[in-house]
Design a protein around this nucleic acid. Structure first.
Lengths: 329, 329
DNA sequence: GGATTGTTAGAATCCTTTCCCAACAATCTT
DNA sequence: AAGATTGTTGGGAAAGGATTCTAACAATCC
């Protein structure tokens, strides 16, 4: 993005003088600084942190001196931030948040947790397969912990590329660029409707048959939404959308409220919409069968724990298929 | 996302014991730790950091003791990470990166820069209006600096909500939820084509008229792509997409290469596709005129510098319209 | 004048680093 | 095969540095 970089400067590498300054930053100073900002008063901040006011004063002054910056305007009633102070406050907050994460995560290790796996996954995977897969995984490896976040498929890829997590699960149609990809699960889309809907008696449906009725859409970045819009376009028809909602449960509730048809994966319906008295009819179109894939940056360089998880996720469906003798649901 | 939170634990608040542990983390230890990880060797790490090897050893041991965790497997050939060590490494890296940002930013303040504004904007704003608007703004306020990142409109909103930046610019059609929104600019979409294209002689075009020809799409999260797909659907037709590309310049290059029609904002064409010998024909549909809006979390609580920028961006078009006497381009 | 506010100074304390040495494993030399 | 050499991490004592505390001091507000 060349045009952006003209005015952006976050990416440039720090000079030697700046790396020297890096060493003058320390966490207690940042913590105290935040306290002073919160209280807008040095004395109260010192009390809150259980330290003498003079110590705080000295730290703030030394810090300002070291960086050649004034952080506060010293008023008679307390301390007010300068622009430089505001900039520091922002970074100080996220830095301390990070440090807190360190403490939390390490203390988990000390209590026996032997590994952490950071994962990103799309909604379909999280709702349908991950709860069971992960709990089965935990049964075999009690000492592991997973940090899972939901994101649309495209951003799962982005997050893995950027190293925000090690394992990602996204729709197989998503472009995963330089990442390594492995098969995870197959998915089947079903049309969800009330039992009194005109189509409720059907065994199977073509997507085009549903286009004469109102639809309830997922959020616009979801792959199901994008794919169904595309299918409608291909058929030369229009999807009549009443509303876009953020989750499968919300879709089912909207269907229940007679807002229209919903299009969600079958297992999601079993999990989320089961007790709601709704009908789910399989989609006959070829794109009604979807694939979820696992993406990683470099399988060879994965941490031992992530490697374990990856191997597990890759074999689990193979096992299941072997037992059942075919591709189930 | 209740189902996700069962297995996710990033959001939970730290216990008292953990906040106590927070104080045992310090940056030099983290820096040394990273050095040891990089070198996989305590002695070399100590040399690199200009410190005695035994001091490093002591720090690592104390740290392990404090958290009750083993970070390394001590091998004869050096030190290898345990899973806990890998987890720490990840967080340590991002923490130090943040600290470096602090040093960089503050040293800029010390050199006279008086304020930082963090912004997110969509591609349309960045390519068309921000370069001029920002440079004009800088002319009036030499001492300010802007940190600008490109994101699709929906994620601009998300970023502002999460506090990643203070000012955002996105398409007016984007749902900005609880954020405050202000008008920024109007936009007009044009159809870009080669001069030898059948439609090249036209003065204006309806989007439906272009649907008989191949199109070049932007990336699927872009508002132009979403909106034009929707329009095609509404017209009961199909958009014949040859390829999706990530930027306006790429669209123009594809058009030049005879891949099809492009749909981009007019000013983007002037900036990016001007010298490429292409035709740009205005879109006559009502949605061909788009609006860009500025979003902020709470205008009343904005920092002084961001406030300045917001006020500037809000007035600049009003001025321009006043001078020109109407809505230009 | 009393009660805020933040700042300064000197002494006590705490912590870190350094230095030297020990134990150990792997590798090379005799 | 035995011994020497190199490189590794770990531990204890002393020196040096940094941080903190108490106490006293200015400036402002009510």
């Amino acid at each position: 993005m060349p045009i952006a970089s003209i005015v952006s400067d976050t990416q440039r590498s720090p000079t030697a003088a700046e790396t020297a300054l890096t060493r003058r930053v320390d966490l207690t100073t940042l913590r105290l600084f935040i306290a002073v900002c919160d209280e807008q008063n040095l004395t109260r901040a010192a009390q809150r942190e259980g330290i003498a006011a003079s110590a705080v004063s000295k730290r703030m002054n030394d810090f300002e001196l070291a960086f050649g910056v004034t952080l506060f305007k010293r008023l008679a009633k307390g301390m007010a931030l300068t622009p430089a102070g505001e900039a520091l406050l922002h970074h100080a907050r996220v830095t301390l948040l990070n440090v807190e994460k360190i403490a939390v995560e390490l203390s988990e290790y000390s209590q026996g947790v032997r590994g952490h796996v950071r994962m990103l996954a799309n909604l379909s995977a999280i709702v349908q397969y991950l709860p069971e897969d992960l709990s089965a995984f935990f049964a075999a490896h009690e000492l592991l912990r997973v940090d899972l976040q939901e994101r649309p498929s495209a951003q799962v890829v982005r997050g893995i590329e950027e190293g925000a997590a090690e394992l990602g699960i996204c729709s197989a149609e998503t472009d995963s660029r330089a990442l390594e990809a492995f098969h995870y699960r197959y998915d089947n889309l079903v049309v969800v409707m009330r039992p009194d809907h005109p189509l409720a008696g059907r065994e199977k449906l073509l997507f085009t048959e549903t286009l004469d009725f109102d639809h309830i859409g997922l959020h616009t970045a979801s792959s199901i939404y994008l794919r169904s819009q595309y299918a409608a376009t291909q058929a030369g028809k229009t999807m009549r959308l009443r509303i876009n909602v953020p989750g499968f449960d919300a879709v089912c509730r909207m269907v229940q409220a007679n807002m229209g048809l919903g299009l969600i994966p079958d297992r999601a319906f079993e999990v989320v919409g089961a007790g709601m008295g709704l009908r789910a009819i399989p989609l006959r179109d070829d794109w009604g069968r979807r694939e979820l894939k696992i993406v990683v940056r470099d399988a060879a360089q994965l941490s031992a724990t992530s490697r374990l998880m990856l191997d597990y996720l890759r074999t689990i469906e193979a096992d299941r298929l072997g037992r059942v003798g075919g591709r189930a649901s």
